[in-house]
Design a protein around this nucleic acid. Structure first.
Length: 304
RNA sequence: GGUCCGAUGGAUGAGUGGUUUAGUCACCGGUCUGCAAAACCGUCUACAGCGGUUCGAAUCCGCUUCGGACCU
């Protein structure tokens, strides 16, 4: 059996990942698997910039509009289903393209997550209430008692991190840190990572323009149609939260659009921060398609 | 021509003699193993220019430049 290759395309939002992924997939006759934590969802194609009908028709896609907005989905569950799907795809293809800007999901797919038990919603809810009532410091103190080792290294000002560690400690009765191996899983396929980027000011212009296009395409109506599901995690998303605030009358339509642009720019910056520290990524301008194909072919050859 | 008002970091905006640069926002940098398009952290030392008073000025005085209002 020849060794299979997963081509991973990452980069900030609006940097041309989707177009590039189509070209790369066609070149290698490969299907595409999404690593975008929001394009999984059905019903929000405009605001999440899902590939359009023509692109979906040209290349076989997976994990695009595959889940309901009400589904509970996370990077751990994604790792399981994505690996399973990948395995199936590799039975018919030598190459698969993964594309998306969700760093943690890329990590889950390429390096794996440690096995952690499911935490039931009730416990999570209870901890959220305790955060409200008792405050972060008390919860951090409890974490210190349950897992002194992790307490030392965690960002204790970040409620999300403290809560996560605490819920695992409580659910398992073991220190969270004892369940973290810090090791990368070895995959039975090769991985080649490339990133798309461009000068910051140009990227920001593109992002701003893309938001305008989304609005023209009907982002507002799309947001309105899912407004009743706003509490779900799937809609804690740039483009929807701002529109919901506008619907609530908190801000004007113009303000909402400006905020969507600004928050998209910030998101792009955070993505760059995440991906920049991954030394495996080879960066390109998305327009340099022949350079990219050359690089990929050479790289795949040397790995074989 | 004259009178008056104003000029603070990318933006906004406090601060009328004295420990460290107010604050907010933006920008920039960073963190990251199950809500990740999330959550969080850090940095950014400016007082229009020149001169003077003073131990010490963004803060007082003078001149210059720029902006605004008004008068003739």
């Amino acid at each position: 059996m020849s060794i299979k290759t997963l081509i991973v395309i990452v980069g900030p939002t609006g940097s041309g990942k989707t177009d590039l992924s189509i070209a790369v997939a066609e070149h290698f006759s490969a299907p595409i698997i999404s690593t975008d934590s929001r394009q999984f969802y059905r019903g929000i194609p405009i605001g999440t910039a899902q590939p359009d009908a023509e692109q979906l028709q040209r290349v076989e896609h997976h994990f695009i509009a595959s889940h309901d907005l009400t589904d509970e989905f996370n990077c751990g569950a994604y790792e399981v289903v994505a690996l399973k799907r990948l395995n199936e795809l590799f039975s018919q293809h030598d190459t698969v393209v993964a594309v998306g800007g969700s760093g943690l999901y890329v990590k889950a797919l390429c390096e794996g997550m440690d096995d952690m038990p499911e935490v039931d919603a009730e416990l999570r809810q209870r901890l959220a209430e305790r955060l409200q009532n008792e405050g972060l410091e008390l919860l951090a103190e409890e974490l210190r008692q349950r897992d002194a080792e992790f307490y030392e290294v965690i960002d204790r000002k970040n409620p999300a991190r403290v809560l996560r560690a605490l819920e695992v400690c409580i659910a398992t009765g073991k220190p969270y840190s004892s369940l973290r191996t810090g090791t990368k899983r070895v995959r039975d396929f090769n991985i080649v990572k490339i990133g798309t980027d461009m000068p910051r000011d140009i990227l920001y212009d593109r992002i701003d323009r893309r938001v305008d296009i989304m609005v023209e395409q009907g982002l507002e109506a799309e947001a309105r149609s899912v407004y009743h599901l706003r509490e779900h995690n799937s809609l804690q998303t740039v483009g929807y939260r701002e529109m919901f605030d506008y619907f609530d009358g908190t801000i004007s339509r113009e303000e909402a659009i400006e905020l969507i642009k600004r928050n998209s720019r910030r998101y792009a910056k955070r993505q760059l921060t995440w991906f920049r520290r991954d030394r495996e990524i080879e960066w390109f301008h998305p327009a340099d398609k022949s350079d990219i194909i050359d690089y990929l072919e050479t790289k795949i050859c040397t790995l074989k």
